[in-house]
Simulated scan of single mutants.
Amino acid sequence: MKNHRTGIAALAALALAGCTATSNQPAPGSAAEALRPYYASLAGDLPQANPGPAIDRSRAISRIGFGSCNHQHRHQTIWPVIADHNPELFLMIGDNVYGDYDYRGEADLRTFEQAYGLQASHPEFIAFRERVPMLASWDDHDFGPNDSGGTFAFREHSEDLFESFWRSSAEVRGRPGIYDSVTIGPDGQLIQIIMLDTRFFRDPLTSLPYSYDRRPLGYYGTVDDPGATLLGAAQWAWLAEELAEPADLRLIVSSIQVLTDAHNWEKWGNMPHERQRLYEALALRNGGGMVILSGDRHSGGLYHGEPEALGESVWELTSSSLNFSFASGDTGEREPDPLRRSGFFSDENFGMVEIDWASGEVALTLNGSDGNSLHSERIRFR
């Protein structure tokens, strides 16, 4: 199968380069267009997670869990721990599998397909799916290679794999990218969850020049081009429409961190024009409180800022990783950050958003893999 798939992909590339025999058919205009017939031949048997319960959008919910960075080859013991916290919804916000593990640039993305297949087989994950409704967005490792964005040549097939595995809605499947939004609950207890896609449309980042003396906190600078995009025109237009809908509380889900500038890894601050645009869009929302959720960092923490373009204070809870920690304990000393209101916990972790509709307060909690709180903050949202 490997040789068959690689051969077809090679033919597609040759067709794009004009190296095959001419015909009356117009030449494909891009590598993606040239590969579509090939990917269509692979689409019949893509991995799927087991079905889960549907979200009851008419009923108020008050307990939402989330997490990121789940490696399919590692233990899955955190799932029953999360289940014990009785989430009514769980958000997978990126690096939900590591499809780029052992990836060598093959067009068929077979390592991504294998990653999804393995994740679908884990009993703990299956049991969690059977119990808890889930929504998902992606980050780089389940989208493409490390730190990849809109120039990834095989992103359309990556999208097919993602949407098949997570059983995405017809609305999500019907447009490029995997951004999504759901609104749940009755008037007065209406929560809107916006799942952004920070990968499919993102323009290239700017790399910092090598420096022996620079601290090891990443290697991306700022993109000064005001025309560079993180979300893409279609997603920006969609976001404005979603924010025009009424809500009492909104969860803005981004795979990469939004508020912080304390590091040079991937973050919204790499494209300051886009981050300002995000703040301005959020400032124009049709009412309701707001919390930002993020992942990616293989550490978790709670942040608070007052961006001028937003015109109000906002909290961001970062949760990472579910089963792929790089260290343990509070590692905040290596990344001083005036916006962080907690330690920077490298232990395996998950986040909980617990809403008290009566008081208009929400508890934002980062929990360790044992289920105990690493940090919690109770804030007002109205």
Rank of each mutant, 00 (worst) to 15 (best):
E106F: 01
R110S: 13
G144K: 01
L118K: 12
W138T: 05
A136N: 06
M92R: 05
F112Y: 12
D142I: 11
Y116W: 14
V97T: 11
A120S: 13
L135Y: 08
M134V: 14
A136G: 11
F143W: 04
E130F: 00
L109K: 01
F112L: 11
R131G: 02
D102A: 09
D140A: 12
G105S: 10
D147Q: 13
N96G: 12
E113A: 14
F112H: 09
M134E: 02
E88C: 07
Q119M: 15
R104A: 12
D140T: 12
E124F: 01
G99A: 09
F112W: 09
N146T: 14
A107I: 01
G144P: 03
Q119C: 08
Q114M: 08
G144A: 10
F90S: 01
N96P: 13
A127G: 09
G99D: 05
Q114E: 15
S137F: 13
V132T: 14
A115D: 04
S137T: 15
T111Q: 05
G117P: 03
Q114A: 15
Y101H: 13
G94M: 06
F143D: 00
M92E: 03
D140W: 09
Y116D: 03
E113T: 13
Y103L: 04
I126L: 10
G105T: 08
L118W: 02
M92K: 01
P123S: 10
A107H: 03
F125K: 04
D142A: 09
I126G: 01
E88L: 06
G144Q: 02
F90K: 04
F128M: 07
M134D: 00
R110C: 06
G105W: 05
D147S: 13
S137H: 06
N146D: 15
Q119R: 14
P133F: 10
E88G: 10
R110Q: 13
H122P: 00
E124W: 00
L89E: 08
A127K: 12
R129T: 06
G94F: 01
E124N: 15
F90G: 00
A120R: 00
N96C: 13
T111G: 02
R104H: 14
A127P: 02
F125C: 04
D140L: 09
V132E: 06
F125Y: 08
P133K: 10
H141T: 08
G94W: 07
E113Q: 15
L109M: 07
R104M: 11
F125N: 09
R129M: 08
T111F: 02
L91K: 09
E130D: 12
L109V: 09
A136P: 07
R110W: 11
F128L: 06
E124G: 04
F90D: 00
E113N: 08
L89S: 07
Y101D: 14
H141A: 10
I126H: 06
G99W: 00
L118S: 08
G144E: 05
G144M: 05
E113I: 11
D108G: 06
D102P: 00
F143R: 02
G105N: 10
N146H: 15
D147I: 09
